[in-house]
């Protein structure tokens, strides 16, 4: 007999993460378990995106995905992948993330209340704005940038931007009204949120100015309730395989977005060495602070970061 598992999804059903990652993955799970496990996606989310770790932990839905940054203060180690210069390919950073998590970060037990099925990142984040070419921190001075919380916010305000902490879904409204001059986004989001005609100047930061950490989690008791055979089958298509699947999709949509921006006639510049140095100077203390946090959890942060960057084939670590 089949076990029916529920999945709560908060992104629109047409979003690449849902259409090309989550849905194909649920099909892989059904195949791997020869139909003994069926995953039912609920018609709409059971709550705000930031509730989705809790939703899986408490079993309101059996499986969820979400972002660590949506619940500040709760997780510490994920920041490793959100620092600048993590890598140019989402596939490489995602796979590296999963491997380093299993080698070291996982020991801290940050996800002990759920069964962790996967970790991944989106593509590298860059700077997009409507006013000018950004090639140094001085160009950011007084620029109103929409940011998420966490590292994005600290970094952008360190570099001199006026930061607006607003949800990414509000960017069209913010930019068309001139409330915001720009935003930090991976390339895909520029076209996904339809701001390519407004954010006409893009500065690409090699390895990314920031990145974003996602998880896929399952209720612990529901996972334990599966037979050993089915648990193994589920994990065989999750973990590294899921990281690779998700990373590839992000890479694909980023590449398509870059083409679209070029076709649109947007100005695309690569961050000069000077800007990269300024970012590096601003981020070094943040990395140090993070290493101290990691040490409190019994994790060697410096070693983990180095392993991550070696694996994700990023430019040499600062």
């Amino acid at each position: 007999d089949t076990t029916k598992l529920t999945l709560s999804s908060w992104l629109p059903s047409g979003h690449p993460l849902v259409k090309d990652v989550i849905v194909p993955w649920t099909e892989q799970v059904e195949q791997a378990t020869e139909g003994r496990v069926e995953i039912v996606m609920l018609p709409s989310a059971l709550g705000h995106p930031k509730m989705h770790y809790d939703i899986a932990r408490d079993g309101q839905a059996d499986i969820t995905y979400g972002a660590h940054g949506y619940t500040p203060g709760r997780f510490k180690l994920y920041k490793m992948v959100e620092f600048p210069f993590g890598g140019d390919s989402a596939e490489a950073t995602s796979v590296a993330y999963w491997k380093v998590y299993n080698q070291s970060l996982g020991k801290a037990g940050e996800h002990r209340d759920v069964q962790l099925l996967g970790l991944f990142t989106h593509g590298p984040g860059h700077i997009h704005n409507s006013r000018k070419t950004v090639s140094a921190a001085a160009d950011l001075k007084g620029l109103k940038l929409r940011v998420g919380g966490g590292i994005m916010n600290d970094l952008a305000s360190d570099l001199g931007a006026v930061t607006l902490q607003k949800p990414s879904s509000s960017i069209y409204e913010l930019m068309s009204s001139g409330v915001a001059d720009g935003t930090l986004f991976p390339l895909e989001s520029v076209t996904a949120f339809n701001i390519q005609d407004k954010a006409t100047h893009t500065t690409l930061v090699p390895g990314g100015l920031y990145n974003f950490s996602f998880f896929v989690a399952m209720n612990r008791d529901r996972f334990a309730g599966l037979s050993q055979q089915d648990q193994d089958a589920v994990m065989s298509v999750s973990g590294e395989a899921l990281a690779r699947l998700a990373g590839r999709v992000w890479d694909r949509v980023d590449a398509a977005a870059l083409e679209a921006l070029k076709t649109n006639g947007n100005e695309i510049t690569e961050a000069p060495e000077a800007l990269i140095d300024e970012v590096r100077a601003s981020v070094d203390p943040m990395v140090e602070a993070w290493q101290a946090e990691a040490a409190e959890l019994g994790i060697d942060g410096a070693a983990a970061l180095q392993a991550f960057r070696a694996e994700s084939d990023a430019p040499a670590a600062p």
């Binding site: 076990t3 029916k4 598992l5 529920t6 039912v40 059971l46 709550g47 705000h48 509730m51 809790d54 939703i55 408490d58 079993g59 309101q60 059996d62 008791d221 529901r222 309730g225």
Partner: peptide
Amino acid sequence: FEYGNPRGWNAALTMIGSTAFD
């Protein structure tokens, strides 16, 4: 009964808290 979740009550009760918070 629909999804065979033995901890259905726990799920439902915690949902009150998340909904209120959310």
